[in-house]
Nucleic acid binder design. Structure first.
Lengths: 265, 265
DNA sequence: GCCTGTATCTCGCTT
DNA sequence: AAGCGAGGTACAGGC
C-alpha cells in the first residue's frame, strides 16, 4: 500500500467523506482548492476567493497558505476539531477550537486536489545556538562572565518575572543576568531592570544587572547606562549534536556546503 | 490547462528538473517526501529521516512540516533562493538566504508526490480586533479613556521607544498610554514604565501612565501599582469589513454558525 | 539597512 | 488553566 493517495476531479460530498475518514485514521491531509475563509475568535477575519494550500494534521492543526509568505493566512492550532461536509454542492471545512473559542470556515469553490498522506516521522529536531545553550555555557564556565563569578541559580523566580541567571561576583555582590541569543534591544534592558528591581525588594545586598548578548542596539546600550546596568558581549555556542549525542553532524553539513560551492560557481 | 500537475513514482533527476522549472514559472510546489534536513544560520539544526510536507512558494519561501504542530520544523523566509538537484540518486533541495546567511539542505530518501500548483490568489486578508483597532477607537472616541481626555499623538517616538497614544487629561497632565489587544502581563507594564521615564526626560510636566487592555494578570497589576501607573479595561473592537468597506459579512458568518449548530447537535 | 513593536503569534515550562 | 518568556520567531512601519 502506498503512503499517499491522490484525488482530483472529486465531488464535494466524496471529498468530505475522504477528509473525515482520513482524519480519523490519523493521516495528514493536503488540499489544493479555490476557497473563501471566515475566521472568528481572538480576532475576526475574512478573505475572498483564491487558490490556497490547506494542511490538516492529525493533531487537529489546520494551516491555510497563500502563494506567498512564510506565515499561513489562517490557521487553527493543535487540539482543534475538524469537520468536513457538503453544502450547496460545495466542500466546507470547519475547524473549532475551545478556550479560547475560535472558528474557521473554509468554503471551497473548486477542489483541485486532495492528497491523503500516511506520514511516519519518529525523529525530533536537534537544535543548538539557543538561549539555553548560552545558559549552559555560563553554568559550566562561569568565568566567561568574569573572574570570580559564581552561578547561584538558573531560572530564578521572583514575584515580577524569572531571572535567567542569578549569580554572585568576587566582591560578594548579587548579579542578575539577562541572556539574549541574538541582538539585545530596549525590551531586554527593561526586562533586566525589572528583575533587578524585583531583587531589591527581596534583599539588601548590593545588586548588579548584566545584559548578555552577542550584540546590542545603540539606544539599548544608552538605556543600560542610564539605569546603571552593564552589558557584556557573548554568543550562544552552536554545537552539532546527533541523536546519540556525538558531534558527527557538522562534517556532513560541510560536505553539502562544498557541494553548493561546486554547483553555483 | 489544469491548475495542478501531479507527479509520483518520479526519479530524483526528473524531480529536480520539474522543481527548478516550476519555481521559475512562479508556481507553488508541494512535495511529500521522506527526508533528512540540515539547517545552519542563526542557529544550527538537524533532523533524521521522516515523512514530511514541503512547500516551496514563488516568493522564495520554503516551509517544511512534520505531521504535528502548527509551526514548520524548518523553513526559509521569502526572498530565499531555491535549488534542486540530484545527488547520489537522491533529490536534494537547497535553499539559501543572505543577511543573515542561512542554509537549508533537504535530502529526500523517497519522493512520494510532487504537485505543481499554478495558484491565483488576488485577495488580501481583512482582519479586525487588532491593537490598531483599539487605537482607532480611542482616537475617534477619546472619552472611552476618561472624560476630558484628548489625544495628542499616535505612535509618538521617544529616544527609548514608541508610545502608542500620547494624550492629555482634563487637568492638563501628560498621559502616556500603552495598548494591548489581549491580556497585559509584566512585560507590558515594563514597557509603559520605560515610556513614562523617557517622557520625564523630555518635559517637566506631570505624567500619568495608563495601561489599556481587556485583561491584566495579577502580578502585572501589582507592578502597575508599585510603579504608580494605572490600568484601564478596554477591548479592541471586532468590526467586520468587506473588501469595499461595508459591514455585510457578519451575517454570512452567523449563517455558517447556525449551520454548525444544526450539524453537531 | 537597522530598529522597534505587534501577533488570532506558537511553544514549552512552571505554578 | 493561567502566567511567563523564548523564538532560527515573521511581519510591518520608520528612519
Amino acid at each position: 500500500m502506498s503512503r499517499v493517495d491522490v484525488f482530483s476531479n472529486i465531488k464535494a460530498r466524496d471529498a468530505s467523506n475522504i477528509i473525515e475518514q482520513s482524519f480519523v485514521r490519523g493521516e495528514v491531509i493536503i488540499i489544493l482548492a479555490n476557497c473563501i475563509i471566515h475566521y472568528e475568535g481572538r480576532a475576526l477575519s475574512d478573505i475572498g476567493p483564491g487558490d490556497r494550500v490547506l494542511i490538516i494534521k492529525p493533531d487537529g492543526t489546520l494551516i491555510i497558505h497563500k502563494k506567498i509568505k512564510r506565515e499561513p493566512v489562517n490557521w487553527q492550532p493543535p487540539g482543534s476539531t475538524i469537520r468536513a461536509y457538503e453544502r450547496n454542492g460545495r466542500l466546507v471545512i470547519k475547524s473549532i477550537r475551545y478556550n479560547p473559542y475560535e472558528i474557521i470556515i473554509v468554503e471551497c469553490l473548486e477542489i483541485y486536489l486532495i492528497a491523503i498522506y500516511d506520514a511516519i516521522d519518529p525523529y525530533a529536531l536537534e537544535i543548538s545556538g539557543t538561549e539555553r545553550d548560552l545558559a549552559e555555557l555560563i553554568y559550566r564556565n562561569p568565568e566567561v562572565i568574569e573572574k570570580g563569578f559564581k552561578v547561584l541559580k538558573l531560572e530564578y523566580q521572583t514575584p515580577f518575572g524569572i531571572i535567567d541567571v542569578l549569580g554572585e561576583d568576587k566582591e560578594g555582590r548579587l548579579v542578575v543576568i539577562e541572556l539574549k541569543r541574538s541582538s539585545a534591544g530596549l525590551q531586554s534592558v527593561s526586562q533586566l531592570r525589572r528583575y533587578v528591581e524585583a531583587m531589591k525588594n527581596l534583599t539588601r545586598r548590593d545588586i548588579r544587572g548584566i545584559l548578555i548578548a552577542p550584540r546590542i542596539t545603540e539606544s539599548a546600550l544608552a538605556l543600560v547606562r542610564k539605569y546603571g546596568l552593564e552589558y557584556k558581549k557573548l554568543e550562544p555556542p552552536k554545537v552539532p549534536r546527533t541523536h546519540d549525542g556525538r558531534g558527527v553532524r557538522s562534517k556532513k553539513l560541510l560536505d553539502y556546503m562544498d557541494d553548493y560551492e561546486n554547483k553555483t560557481e
